[in-house]
Write a protein that binds this DNA or RNA. Sequence first.
DNA 1: CAATATAATTTAGACTTCTTAACTATTTAG
DNA 2: CTAAATAGTTAAGAAGTCTAAATTATATTG
Lengths: 145, 145
Amino acid sequence: MSLDPFVPTLKEWIEVSMRYSMRNFLHFARESGLSMSHLGAIYHIHQLGSCGVTEIGEHLGVTSAAASQMLDRLVQQGLVHRTEDPDDRRVKQIGLTVEGQRILNAGIQARESWLDQLAEKLSSDEKDRITAALQVLVAKGNQLG
Amino acid sequence: MSLDPFVPTLKEWIEVSMRYSMRNFLHFARESGLSMSHLGAIYHIHQLGSCGVTEIGEHLGVTSAAASQMLDRLVQQGLVHRTEDPDDRRVKQIGLTVEGQRILNAGIQARESWLDQLAEKLSSDEKDRITAALQVLVAKGNQLG
DNA sequence: CAATATAATTTAGACTTCTTAACTATTTAG
DNA sequence: CTAAATAGTTAAGAAGTCTAAATTATATTG
């Protein structure tokens, strides 16, 4: 078991992909004028779907006051909408605006822009085998907590 | 070409691995009491090896004044050492202390802690095929800029 | 209905991070 | 040797982010 190169190889790959992906993402953040905090919040809101202020705070690890203040800025920048929940008027429903979605997608695309270059370095055969392998990983990965 | 599922599958996998890796890393950051800025700086210092203050600032996208101030804190926390370069006494050589290295390694380990769980979900056969595929990806990935 | 709980916000204050500008020390170029 | 360039630090101030506490509005419970 300790000789199985699977996990070590996976770690190597994650090291590589993190290095390029984060570099591109940080570059995008600077270009777009958004802080990592803001982009992180946008990502969490996307992940959570429609949700309340406190819930976002919990995911970000901050108080609801801090979440409320951060959302102020994001609403002001037109990236997030904040509307009253008709079922419980204490709650605000938070979600991404079209522009917020656009920024999120642009960030993800920037993060992944190095993959086309990588693809060019591989033969059809290699790509087929790698695709099959990754499909297994994706499927099993999505089954984890 | 547009039908080649290679890049889309790779993107799916990066989506999955980023989600788990970042979640674990953020959790580690909170537990260790270090900000993402500090951990980011530590990572950059590690990547650059021995380097000067301005160089770190450039990599982080901030002025040398900001880099100097951030390094103050990291030195004070015992994570970074800052010594005069004997060849050019204007320059300070920056590097990680043993404790800084330890924190970095702990962060990387935390980031990757979900991979053992993933490995358990795969057969030996699957792991062999995936390992072979990833070795190709790592090799080609390291050839990119 | 009255008391309590919950969701969000506002306020005040602490702390961090960043920038620009001024400054020190050292090196390089003319 | 002097002048200019470079590396880093320091200082002052702007802006962001966080918390605790107080506040408002709404919902739930007894």
